[in-house]
């Protein structure tokens, strides 16, 4: 092979290797760093292993917000209309955090089933419902209906 060609072949091989390793790194860390969205029902059913970082969301239950007397800790419950999950957060809540409002929180479920949030997001537009929360509500709604229908069917037999 022409030496010039050979050199260029080495270069190309090196570049392919570099790209491949970049892709490998990307895929590996993607599997480590994605945060799945889980609905309150999934959490309440124990489908989420404790200690795994997830996103959870739903509507903040009316009257469920309780603050610490000393620090900034706050507990509240979120619902998808079917199940409720208690959430604890220590920090500044976003401006639009309000009872009845849809929120998304990043954090993990502890062994007692409490969702410990490291970040709470409420979007800045009141017209806007986080899409995940929307889907969770819809899902819970459909599940609820299906259960009711099943129950009604059973009752009628």
């Amino acid at each position: 092979m022409h030496p010039q060609r050979k050199k260029r072949l080495h270069l190309i091989l090196f570049l392919v290797l570099a790209v491949a390793s970049a892709v490998g790194l990307a895929m590996y860390s993607l599997s480590q760093n994605i945060n799945l969205f889980q609905t309150p029902t999934q959490i309440a059913n124990g489908e989420v292993p404790p200690g795994r970082t997830i996103r959870a969301g739903g509507l903040v239950v009316e009257g469920s917000v309780e603050r610490d007397q000393q620090g900034l800790g706050v507990t509240f419950r979120v619902t998808d209309g079917q199940s409720e999950v208690p959430v604890f957060y220590d920090g500044i809540l976003p401006d639009l955090f309000r009872e009845g409002q849809g929120i998304v929180a990043l954090g993990e479920v502890n062994t007692e089933g409490l969702f410990v949030a490291s970040e709470v997001l409420a979007k800045h537009d009141e017209n806007y419902m986080p899409p995940e929360v929307q889907a969770a509500l819809e899902q819970a709604h459909q599940d609820g209906k299906a259960q009711m229908e099943a129950a009604a069917k059973e009752a009628s037999y």
């Binding site: 009316e62 209309g81 009845g100 509500l137 819809e138």
Partner: peptide, 14 residues
């Protein structure tokens, strides 16, 4: 005011 009927209706926003 609390959006309870809205929740029943599956309302996402107005």
């Amino acid at each position: 005011p609390q959006g309870k009927l809205g929740l029943e209706l599956g309302v996402y926003g107005a």
